[in-house]
């Protein structure tokens, strides 16, 4: 308690304003939050889906059952993200950031909750319908997750699978000309068109991650989910990576949701922050005017 108070003293008013959803003074702060931050989305009842909502999740929860009982990693996570927004999900290790992204795409099946992707529910889908829905979201992981024994161009071509490009997109050697051209365009957008013929294991970390982004662009997505895209890169490459995302989103109008524990990146490149703590949303507001110090409380130990 002592440390937090000392840290928070100079900016306690800012802290109060952002600690709107949870915490000891939730009721007071909610009133204050409503006054000072009118743009604050709240999910008291309906997730407020409208034509501009790219992704809405409501009451998302994930509980693992183990021999030692149950382990709840997400509880009642709700947010709605408008098309064209760039949002950062922040929080300490194990707060459920990556899990919430994976659950939102049902890569991990959520225990409870609803998901609306461009207004359409995702929970009931399976098979082709689920694959089509997933193809709207380009997922970029902390690791590039390329097939390193294949060429760069083949890896980018794999982004076309969900559009129904079949076996011919397995490798660039047999891919149709339009698909090859399209893949090269995607590589061009991340500045790597000169490396299309190279084997993917001969790239640097930053280049590999950019190929992963080109592969996501090949899907023709309307959203990009980026799970710690800069965490395995050196600071310079990480900075370049975030700048590239930001630039891509501005140029193409893509909606970006980035999970990061790098607060500088989150504050610099996202318009809105969603903070998770122990699997719950404890912060959801615009990033303007916030500093690193304002968010230090997110990283404190909880549940002690």
């Amino acid at each position: 308690m002592l440390l937090r108070d000392i840290l928070n003293m100079p900016t306690s008013s800012a802290i109060d304003r952002i600690r709107v959803i949870d915490g000891p003074n939730a009721v007071d702060l909610e009133r204050e939050g409503a006054q000072s931050a009118p743009s604050l989305p709240r999910f008291t009842d309906a997730p407020g889906i409208n034509s501009k909502t790219a992704l809405a999740v409501k009451g998302l929860g994930k509980t693992y059952t183990t021999q030692n009982g149950t382990n709840t990693v997400l509880r009642d996570v709700s947010f709605a993200i408008n098309a064209g927004d760039s949002v950062a999900i922040v929080g300490a290790n194990g707060s459920g950031k990556s899990t919430s992204l994976r659950c939102a795409m049902r890569l991990i099946e959520p225990t409870t909750g609803e998901i609306f992707l461009e207004g359409r529910p995702l929970m009931g889908l399976s098979g082709l319908a689920l694959r089509k829905a997933r193809s709207k979201v380009g997922f970029v992981f902390q690791k590039h997750n390329l097939s390193t024994r294949l060429s760069v161009l083949s890896n980018v071509l794999h982004g076309g699978f969900a559009r129904g490009c079949g076996i011919r997109n397995w490798t660039h050697s047999i891919a149709p000309k339009e698909e090859r051209d399209r893949a090269l365009d995607c590589l061009d957008q991340v500045g790597l068109a000169d490396l299309a013929g190279r084997r993917a294991d001969q790239l640097s970390g930053g280049q590999s991650q950019r190929v992963a982004i080109a592969r996501a662009l090949m899907q023709g997505p309307s959203l990009i989910f980026a799970d710690e895209p800069a965490a395995s890169l050196d600071p310079k490459a990480g900075e370049d990576m975030m700048a590239l995302f930001s630039d891509l989103c501005r140029r193409t109008g893509l909606t970006l949701i980035v999970v990061s524990h790098n607060l500088e990146h989150a504050l610099a490149y996202a318009d809105r922050l969603i903070g998770l703590q122990a699997g719950s949303v404890v912060l959801d507001r615009k990033s303007t005017g916030l500093t690193r110090e304002d968010l230090a409380w997110l990283y404190e130990e909880t549940g002690a």
Binding site: L107, G138, F139, N145, H158, G159, F161, A212
Partner: peptide, 9 residues
């Protein structure tokens, strides 16, 4: 996982 996330078969 990356290919599954894209909607690959």
């Amino acid at each position: 996982e990356a290919l599954a996330a894209m909607g690959a078969k």
